[in-house]
């Protein structure tokens, strides 16, 4: 084994171990949060970052050939597919949960949300101006 092969081995192992650590974080998050819409945030991380760092490690191992190209194709496909499936899952949750307002605030109209946000912002600036510092 020459130096190039050692470098390949070490770089690939580092990427693979990063990927495994991200998968572990994903699992921890899924068990730590209490509600689906929070869990989805943790679960979407492994779909993009976890699998892409694992496959980058495997690409470094396999070198330049068609297998590398196919792995890159998988990563690109998941970058597009993962946000779409998260969106569809959250729509499922919002459509079927009757007690959604227990878990998060719901605004029926976007104008109401903007009104409240601007009111909050005005309060913050008032506090800052009133603060003699």
């Amino acid at each position: 084994m020459n130096a190039v092969e050692w470098i390949k081995l070490i770089a690939g192992s580092i990427f693979l171990i990063i990927g495994i650590v991200i998968f572990f974080t994903e699992l921890f998050g899924v068990f730590h949060f209490k509600y689906v819409l929070n869990r989805m945030h943790a679960a979407a991380m492994g779909d993009t970052l976890g699998i892409s760092s694992c496959l980058i490690g495997l690409m470094i191992f396999s070198g330049l050939n068609f297998t590398t190209l196919k792995m890159f194709l998988i990563v690109v496909f998941l970058w597009f597919a993962s946000p779409v499936s998260s969106h569809v899952l959250s729509r499922l949750e919002a459509a079927t949960n009757e007690h959604l307002s227990d878990h998060c605030e719901i605004y029926e109209d976007v104008a109401l949300l903007e009104q409240e946000l601007s009111a909050r912002r005005a309060e913050n600036t008032m506090e800052k101006e009133g603060d003699p510092s």
Partner: peptide, 23 residues
Amino acid sequence: PRVADRLVAVNMMGTMVMVMISI
């Protein structure tokens, strides 16, 4: 507890199986 929970978990399993197949 909910259907969306199960679907999120199945999605995660799919991702892990993909890494296993590549390895």
